[in-house]
């Protein structure tokens, strides 16, 4: 695996990256946002979840204007409780990106394992896995995620629901998204498993698990990487949608979607910034990841060059 990564690194991958302005810009945007999210506790002007730093008098400050009562200036304004919108966005991005990355990782591990298993073992194992995948694919992912969220919420004890909500969300989005990975990995596995190096590995007495993870997996990784990037954009949007609908991140741990939900309530009273900035952040984030995924798909697909 390290070997194949090195090969990818030395190839024209980097060259092609530096030649694509769209890829470079979206990569930088994503990098800045991830850094902002990770470093939020250090760079955010306020900790929006520490009531001691909040001043209710600061509520509803307009962006870049001194507050009428305290004279404090907030770049992106404040919400009803005087929380700095810039800080809540940084913390919200933390939740959004964490849920997005973890959900995709979960979907990826699940999808790759099931895909390898289906492709390599075949028989009734394959039939069952791929049938389930087919059926799940007929329902939109967001609906599947909602249903899983609802069922999982029913199973968690009432006093743990808010704490567990983030994890339930990760499982719901992850489970709604494994099918793509499984289908691609299965397809690639079917091609790889009849090649000579696999025959050689079998003759060497390798166990099936070893063949799958050490020999087949590295060779099916590049399409997986592309799907993972596109899935990340989808997962971030799914998370935002679920949280916006009130069936995702709880108000105690607001993600970008929760912030938009909160902001929608102030749209009519003129406090547009509470909604506007989180929405723009979400859009820029999702769009950048999407563009990065598009570029990656073209770059890793030798047929298109």
């Amino acid at each position: 695996m390290i070997d194949s990564l090195q090969r990818a690194w030395r190839s024209d991958f980097l060259w092609s990256f530096s030649r694509s302005p769209v890829a470079v810009v979206s990569f930088l945007v994503v990098l800045v946002m991830v850094l902002g999210a990770v470093l939020a506790p250090w760079i955010a002007p306020h900790n929006p979840f520490d009531p001691a730093t909040l001043n209710l008098m600061n509520g509803f400050s307009s962006p870049m204007e001194p507050n009428a009562f305290t004279g404090d200036v907030f770049w992106l304004g404040t919400d009803d409780q005087g929380r700095d919108v810039f800080s809540t966005i940084l913390y919200g991005m933390r939740i959004s990106l964490f849920v997005g990355f973890t959900a995709v990782l979960f979907a990826m591990v699940l999808g790759i394992s099931l895909g390898l298993l289906a492709g390599y073992v075949g028989g009734w194992v394959e039939t069952i896995i791929m049938r389930v995948a087919d059926v799940q694919l007929t329902f939109p992912a967001i609906l599947v995620a909602m249903l899983i969220f609802g069922i999982a919420k029913g199973f968690t004890p009432v006093h743990l629901r808010d704490q567990m909500a983030i994890w339930v969300l990760i499982i719901a989005i992850g489970l709604s998204d494994w099918v793509q990975f499984a289908r691609v990995v299965r397809g690639a596995t079917l091609v790889e498993k009849n090649k000579e190096y696999i025959q050689a590995a079998k003759l060497n007495g390798r166990k099936p698990l070893g063949i799958m993870s050490l020999h087949i997996l590295p060779n099916v990784l590049s399409p997986v990487l592309v799907i993972a990037t596109i899935s990340l954009a989808l997962a971030i949007i799914s998370e935002a949608t679920l949280s916006f609908l009130g069936v995702g991140a709880p108000p105690t741990q607001p993600s970008l979607g929760t912030l938009i939900r909160i902001g929608q309530g102030y749209l009519f009273s003129g406090e547009w910034w509470i909604l506007f900035y989180p929405a723009v952040t979400l859009l820029v984030l999702a769009l950048s990841v999407n563009l990065l995924g598009d570029w990656l798909r073209d770059a890793l697909n030798p047929k298109l060059r």
Partner: peptide, 29 residues
């Protein structure tokens, strides 16, 4: 897909359909 995505639209517009009913059902288990 339209019927499924109606859940989102119905919530945004507080449209009294089955989608909004479903979201409320999830919220209250």
């Amino acid at each position: 897909a339209i019927i499924a995505f109606a859940i989102i639209t119905e919530t945004v517009f507080q449209w009294p359909g089955v989608g909004l009913l479903f979201i409320n059902a999830i919220q209250f288990v």
